[in-house]
């Protein structure tokens, strides 16, 4: 038997694919939102290619942020990087009070218009939740387990790869999820600085007063964000299930949790 939640996700995903593949079939559905015979389906570019470049931008920035942030978190939790630990904690706390849209806007004077500032802003802002979660994951391991790893004769590297990273993985994945969700949203706003993405559809709708554009752009990005977030959550749950307790359960929202952008 398929669980209702999974079924719902499948239906929504299928609907999204169907809409992207043949949007014109859905024109009738959106037509009531238009005035004076304006087009109901976005006609200034292909929705599929906008979706793909949107996803590509997010994937690129989030992958880069993951590599750098996890690397940094590993560094500051080793003896060699201990001097930077306190500062990096403070820096992440301060950094997360910066609105992503401000980070995006401030990247423009530095990088000009187009994909560049969006990718830079996504990368910079994406570092924060991944770094914070990795740091929590790597610094709150049960001391007895970490000590056992050393006492069994693991080298520092073996301990990191065989014990610390696997145990921190659910939290790291949660950080990547937050980063990806924030990235998807920031990339939408990136259309205002001429990055290619689904924000274009919404912006075009707002400028031409075409509600159908606004709604289809909004719904596509909304569904993408929910599905991607869901996917990461399932992955995180898988990696933590064996351990008996899921680290996500009943955790209060902290500054790292703020998702909407």
């Amino acid at each position: 038997m398929i669980r209702p939640g999974l079924l719902l996700r499948l239906v929504v995903f299928t609907a999204l694919i169907a809409f992207l593949a043949m949007p014109d079939r859905f024109a009738g559905l959106l037509a009531p939102l238009t005035d004076n015979g304006a087009p109901a389906i976005y006609n200034q570019g292909s929705l599929v290619s906008l979706t793909l470049s949107h996803l590509f931008t997010v994937a690129l920035a989030t992958s880069a942020a993951t590599i750098v942030a996890v690397g940094l978190a590993i560094f500051v939790t080793r003896p060699a990087g201990a001097e930077f630990l306190a500062l990096s904690r403070a820096a992440v706390n301060i950094g997360q009070t910066f609105p992503p849209v401000a980070v995006l806007a401030l990247s423009v004077p530095a990088m000009g218009f187009g994909e560049g500032p969006t990718r830079l802003a996504l990368f910079l802002y994406g570092l924060l939740p991944i770094f914070e979660n990795s740091l929590v994951g790597l610094s709150t391991l049960p001391p007895a387990v970490v000590e056992s790893a050393s006492a069994m004769g693991m080298t520092g590297r073996q301990r990191l790869l065989k014990v610390e990273l696997p145990l921190a993985m659910p939290l790291i994945i949660e950080g990547i999820r937050l980063s990806a969700v924030i990235g998807l949203a920031t990339a939408t706003i990136g259309s205002t600085v001429a990055a290619k993405g689904l924000g274009e559809v919404i912006v075009a709708g707002l400028q031409s007063n075409n509600l159908a554009f606004v709604v289809q752009g909004g719904v596509i990005t909304g569904i993408l964000a929910v599905l991607i977030s869901d996917g990461f959550q399932i992955l995180a749950r898988r990696t933590s299930k064996r351990r008996g307790a899921s680290p996500q359960a009943s955790r209060p929202a902290t500054d790292g949790q703020q998702a909407p952008v």
Partner: peptide, 21 residues
Amino acid sequence: PAYELRRSIGYAIQSHGLFPH
């Protein structure tokens, strides 16, 4: 080297320190 030494000596503790994964 510490790691080599430790592989030759057994070590057990109160909270057992088993690897949960």
